[in-house]
Structures are given as structure tokens and as C-alpha cells.
């Protein structure tokens, strides 16, 4: 498949420039062996257009910076091989998030907001003793927490989500997955009732339409359906119990 001539249709818009209008720009590129969208974008920027804006840091699906719509699907640029795509590739920035320019969006503000809203840290009244031995945790609990923590906050689940696109206040899969992580953590002393106050509404767990674009688009393949369902069941029970 290599050595194809690839055509990239890339969204261009600089919101800080009042004269600029959103438009699509076309670039031609020779495909190389093992080429990813990340490699292609760097080649375009180096060889054809230094003004092209896009985000990347790690190029290894760890930092979650390079999420974008690749032929309509929210994907990580560093993880998407051009050989899996047709020769014509359309790149758009992730919806929902604030556009910085071209393919670059600000996911940080959004994720900081959900961290603060759900108070995504351990709530305990225990005094921390740095000299004491660490408390033990059984293997399954540790695994469940780790599974949720694998989220790299790339924003693909939010961009693909119909509810998140329609309702800006919706926490989305990333937010609810974060809550699930603290729900299973025995060190967190928050009760189900405490969580219900924050996420027991359409802004939280009951806002989900069940379309599962989050799970289908998650580059880390997190079990988001199970995570969302876990939170929903727990919150429904907490709400009914009073």
C-alpha cells in the first residue's frame, strides 16, 4: 500500500485572526512505510506549510494531545496508520472543545473543569503518616482503579458523544469514568449520596443516551460501557434509597 499519493483535506482556521475564515485546505503527500497521521502532519508542516497548527507531545498514545477527527472518527493522530485509510484523508479538530487553531483544541480547560466539578481526588479525614507502611489493597480493587486510570484524557470519547455535543454541561464518559475510579477506591470516604448530588442528574450519569460512541472511539479501549453502567446503577440505587 505504501507509495500511494495521499490527499489531505485539512481544516484551517485561526480564531485569533479576525480576517481568517474557516476553510479546508488540500495537501498532497507521498505515503511512506509505517506512516501515521502524526508523521504525515509533521512532514506537511516541515515541507509545505509551517503555519499548520496541531498538537502532539509523545507520539506514542500516552499524552493524549493529538486527538482529531480522522475521516469523521475521533482518533489519535499518532496511533492512526495511513495504510488503514483511503488515499483521501479529511482532518478536522475535535468538536466540543475550544478551538485554538486548525487541528489544535484546548482539552485542558474542559478536563480541569470536570476534575474540579467531581472533586477528582481522594476525600478522607485520615491524617497522612509518611513513616507508616502503605495500606494494603486487594488485587481486584487495584486492578479496577488502574483500568479507569488508563484514560489519557485525549477527549475522543467527548468529541464523539452526541450528548456532550448537545449539552455543554454533560460530564461525558471521561468524567463519569473518573468518578467510577473514586467510587471503587476504598480510601475515598465519599458516600453514594455525596456522588449523587454531583452526578445524579442529566448533567451526569442520567444524561447518557446510550449511543456508546465513547466506547467505540476510545483509543485506550477502556470498558466505558461497563463503567458508565456501573455508575448509573450505583446512582439509581442511591437515589431510590434516599
Amino acid at each position: 500500500m505504501a507509495n500511494r499519493q495521499l490527499t489531505f483535506n485539512i481544516f484551517r482556521y485561526n480564531p485569533t485572526n479576525p480576517k481568517d475564515k474557516p476553510h479546508m485546505q488540500t495537501y498532497q503527500l507521498q505515503e511512506t512505510e509505517g506512516m501515521t497521521i502524526f508523521v504525515a502532519l509533521n512532514m506537511i508542516r516541515e515541507e509545505q506549510d509551517p503555519s499548520l497548527m496541531f498538537d502532539f507531545v509523545c507520539r506514542a498514545a500516552i499524552c493524549g494531545s493529538c486527538g482529531m477527527l480522522i475521516n469523521g472518527k475521533p482518533r489519535l493522530a499518532c496511533r492512526t496508520l495511513t495504510k488503514d485509510l483511503p488515499p483521501e484523508i479529511t482532518l478536522l479538530p475535535l468538536p466540543v472543545f475550544k478551538l485554538i487553531g486548525d487541528l489544535s483544541v484546548d482539552t485542558g480547560t474542559w478536563f480541569r473543569h470536570i476534575s474540579l466539578k467531581t472533586e477528582a481526588w481522594i476525600h478522607t479525614d485520615k491524617e497522612f503518616d509518611p513513616r507508616a507502611q502503605e495500606e494494603r489493597m486487594d488485587n481486584k480493587t487495584a486492578y479496577d482503579i488502574y483500568e479507569a486510570e488508563r484514560c489519557i484524557e485525549c477527549g475522543c470519547c467527548i468529541a464523539g458523544c452526541l450528548t456532550a455535543n448537545l449539552r455543554p454541561e454533560f460530564l461525558g464518559a471521561a468524567g463519569l469514568n473518573r468518578v467510577a475510579r473514586f467510587m471503587v477506591d476504598p480510601r475515598d470516604k465519599r458516600s453514594a449520596k455525596d456522588y449523587f448530588e454531583v452526578i445524579g442528574s442529566d448533567e451526569g450519569t442520567f444524561g447518557c443516551y446510550g449511543l456508546m460512541a465513547c466506547e467505540d472511539n476510545c483509543p485506550m479501549e477502556l470498558p466505558l460501557q461497563q463503567q458508565l453502567a456501573f455508575v448509573r446503577r450505583k446512582m439509581a440505587w442511591a437515589g431510590l434509597k434516599r
Partner: peptide, 26 residues
């Protein structure tokens, strides 16, 4: 009815932009 957005074109635009089977079935 509370699931239906007040502006239909938002639904349509989203479904066209983000290609996803379950979104179309919904």
C-alpha cells in the same frame, strides 16, 4: 421528548460529522 434537542440540525450535523453506527440508529 426531553432527549430531543430544540434544534434538529444539531443532531443532523453531529451525525454527519462524527461517523458512528449507533448514533445513526438512534
Amino acid at each position: 421528548c426531553r432527549r430531543i434537542p430544540s434544534r434538529y440540525q444539531e443532531l443532523w450535523e453531529h451525525a454527519k460529522l462524527v461517523r458512528h453506527t449507533d448514533t445513526w440508529t438512534w
